[in-house]
Simulated assay, not measured.
Amino acid sequence: MQIAKKTKENNISEYVLYMYQIEDLIRANNLSLDTIVTTILKPQIQDESILDAYKVWYADLIKQMKIEGIQKKGHLSDLNEILMEMSLLHNTLINIIKEPKYLKVFEGALPSLKAFQAKSNAGDINLIEIGFNALYSKIILGLKKQSISEASNEAFKSIATMFGFLAAYYKKMKKGELDFANN
């Protein structure tokens, strides 16, 4: 909860990946708040007030997942909204503003994004979501302690670099510091 809040403020890309993990953690615990509290929260959090705040946060997320029908797969509507904003910003940066720095990192990541799209049978989902799926798959591979080839590591690095730039532009956009009209 506190990590999510700070990450959302500082790096939206890291926030999305963090929330993907939280969604999967909730699913792995069968959307059971009691199980999450007993096995994850209580062993790590000694302060009762902080524990109570986390209980409320997880309870709200579980409720939202049930309401939105994403108990098995899918993402919270809040995350989908962020993904859409990031996709729109991405398209604005490359097609309208033609931001040189962003274009360069995007062009560097594009072959990796296309390769991941082909390997994952992702269909026609946008490149931003494909990139998040790729980076999340790297996290999962790391948690499973599976080896990753040098070529795959380079591909993940190019996608992560692009998302770092996109997160910085997103933060500027949210602060009202991006002037789309004068570009």
Rank of each mutant, 00 (worst) to 15 (best):
M1F: 05
I3M: 07
A4S: 14
K6P: 06
K6F: 10
T7S: 12
T7R: 12
N10G: 12
S13A: 12
V16L: 09
L17F: 10
Y18F: 12
E23R: 04
I26P: 04
R27D: 15
N29I: 02
N29Q: 09
N30S: 12
N30Q: 14
L31A: 08
L31P: 10
S32P: 09
D34R: 00
T35F: 08
I36R: 14
T39D: 06
T39H: 14
T39K: 14
K42F: 01
P43E: 02
Q46E: 13
D47A: 03
E48S: 08
S49G: 02
D52N: 12
A53V: 11
Y54T: 04
Y54L: 01
V56A: 09
W57T: 00
Y58L: 04
D60K: 11
I62K: 04
E68A: 06
G69K: 04
H75K: 09
L76V: 10
S77N: 15
L79M: 11
N80E: 12
I82W: 06
M84E: 15
M86C: 05
S87A: 04
N91V: 01
T92P: 01
T92C: 04
I94T: 06
I94S: 05
I96P: 03
I97N: 06
K98H: 08
E99M: 06
P100E: 00
L103A: 00
K104N: 06
V105K: 03
F106H: 07
L110W: 02
P111K: 02
K114Y: 04
K119E: 09
A122L: 12
D124G: 05
D124Q: 08
I125L: 03
I128Y: 00
I130P: 03
N133W: 06
L135Q: 06
Y136K: 01
S137E: 10
I140Y: 11
L141F: 09
L141Y: 14
G142M: 11
K144A: 15
K145T: 13
S147E: 14
S149P: 11
S149Q: 13
E154W: 11
A155L: 07
I159P: 11
M162T: 05
A167S: 15
Y170D: 13
Y170P: 06
K171T: 10
K172N: 11
M173Q: 11
K175S: 12
K175A: 15
E177W: 00
L178E: 05
F180K: 10
F180T: 00
F180P: 05
